[in-house]
Design a protein around this nucleic acid. Sequence first.
DNA 1: AAAACGGGGCC
DNA 2: GGCCCAGTTTT
Length: 357
Amino acid sequence: MKGKNNQLYHFFTTELMNWNEYDNNREMPWKFEKDPYKIWLSEIILQQTRVEQGLAYYNRFILKYPTVTKLAKADESTVFKLWEGLGYYSRCRNLLATAKIIAENHDGVFPSNYEDIVKLKGIGPYTAAAISSFAFNLPYAVVDGNVTRILARFFGIETPIDTGQGKKAFSSLADTLLDSKYPAKFNQAIMDFGATICKPKSPFCATCPLAKNCFSFKNEMTSFLPVKSKKIVKKERWFYYLLVQYKNYVLIRKRDEKDIWRDLHEFVLIESTKKESIKKIINSTGAKFFSQKAMMVKPCNTLFKQQLTHQVINASFIEIKLIEKLPLTGYFWVHKKEIKNWAFPKLTNDFLKENNF
DNA sequence: AAAACGGGGCC
DNA sequence: GGCCCAGTTTT
């Protein structure tokens, strides 16, 4: 039984490494990169993010911050502005924090072993394995969505990939399969393979070099593997944004609670768990303070909707022009021309763009 | 162990 | 409308 498994393992690795020689045309600026800083940056950007979406961000970051030392000296708001629109903003916060740690505690030199790398903020098992193998050619197998999908399908593993047990099993199997002489090449190959051949939908089994020994291909199971255990429940929220203005100034604040869009900015927010009438919002205790001192209150008709992983945000914007410059705790006044210097959620930028604000 | 964290693209 | 993406952190 063990011998049979070993043969299968060998087949998998051999075919995969062979495939990479000829059939892989994915071009990415960080491919075959050896600078751990550039690899790190690319891996953080690509967490839960498609290559096509992250590519432009990567290029802009490298241009502006060519080294980890340069990044470490950067202003947080500037870095967030550069990250704006990419999502999962804790990645940006951790990126800067880690750059500072490397600059201050490691003399600006990226750690060169897995144990030290995985301790850094924003770097988990996947990213540590990627940096270790790509930059330092250390034998750590990456386990991302591509890898779990390929392994679940090829070996017919029904263990859910999003459980502790599953992660352990897939990681262990990946380490067994890893070509320890060429870890960087193996890791690059398996992810390219997942992205181009063993795709989530409509994989190219007809031309797949692994198909003849693939459990899912032989048993018509590709559409059922891998298995995920968790069902996502979405909640719906209604955001009513007051564009409180005085002359050419508008009130904004930085979101600082543990919630979506932390460290991004927003206008005066009145939130509800359900849809409200604009009239009710304007007359609410939160808005009355302003509407009483307003020369103009104008709701914008468009409803902005943003789908997130665990929630749906519905946003309406209401313009309020004041006759005097009122203060509001937690908020600050900025000139309209300065708005573009602050990072905002995508939904807000959509509004700003549509309304030439 | 489960939940939360964005935004985009595909079917 | 649901799924998935070169996952990690927090609860």
